[in-house]
Amino acid sequence: MTALNTAPRTVRSAPARAITPPAKPRRPWRTVITVAITLLVVLVFWSVKVDWARTANLPADIARYLWLMFSNPAWDRVPEALWQTWRSVEMAWVGCLLGIVISFPLSFLAARGIGPAPVRLALRGLFSLIRAVPEIVIAIVILSVTGLTPLTGALALAVNGIGTLGKWGYEAIEGVHPGPIEAVKAAGGSRWQTVRWGIWPQAAPEFVSFWLYRFEINVRASAVLGLIGVGGIGDMLTSYTQYREWPTVGALLIVVIIVTIAIDLTSGAIRRRITEGSKARDLA
């Protein structure tokens, strides 16, 4: 405490000494980029033609549709909605499993230090290419081969899953501590032995966490995929919106939201347990 109290006094009583702080670094490019982005945002805002008069009605419209949908939801449709939701979840699940099975070996081959450079670059290109295309576009392409079935949806989710899971996978692999890898090498381990006992024990929890997260994404995406008619809750939702049966749409939305949130919460809790739970116990 004494040190704290005396410190300011010592500073004040010290003779004034000329200090020269280093010159502030000049960053001309930062200024240029800031100005350019600001201009761009302003220009884009002005170039978009918005009918501001119509937006005045928006709040009233939203309120009217909300009232139509939720004032008296068609509860008798809930069993069918649940059944269709189940079909969507199945689509998400199958798509997730296929994505895992295919992306798993690929993410190892795409990681620095494991796969040869040409293979690595090709796979990374493939992953980015896949991620650039939304599931629904993939589904429309696959549609011409497999037809309007839930399998189309599952395949579209699987293809997209390869892109995301592949990228997350190789990033997790490259992020592990090098120590255990060095230990396996020093003990005479081969490349795949190093992968199995130097890398995998470190990366496994992250992999499982990514798989669950991808399932969450798929559950949400599978509802959207229904819009193109591959079945499931999205399909049902589109139909009733077209018939303008708002009470049914309301009931369907309630089911979709509750099921999605329930799956998100459960999977999120498991993921936290896997990644953070172990850390929390390590500290103990």
């Binding site: 003990a187 005479g188 024990p201 496994a204």
Partner: peptide, 18 residues
């Protein structure tokens, strides 16, 4: 340089990989 998330046994068995 142990793999912390796996068991002591699995870490020691790394010595048998060769």
């Amino acid at each position: 340089n142990l793999a912390g998330r796996t068991t002591v046994l699995n870490n020691v068995l790394v010595g048998r990989l060769a």
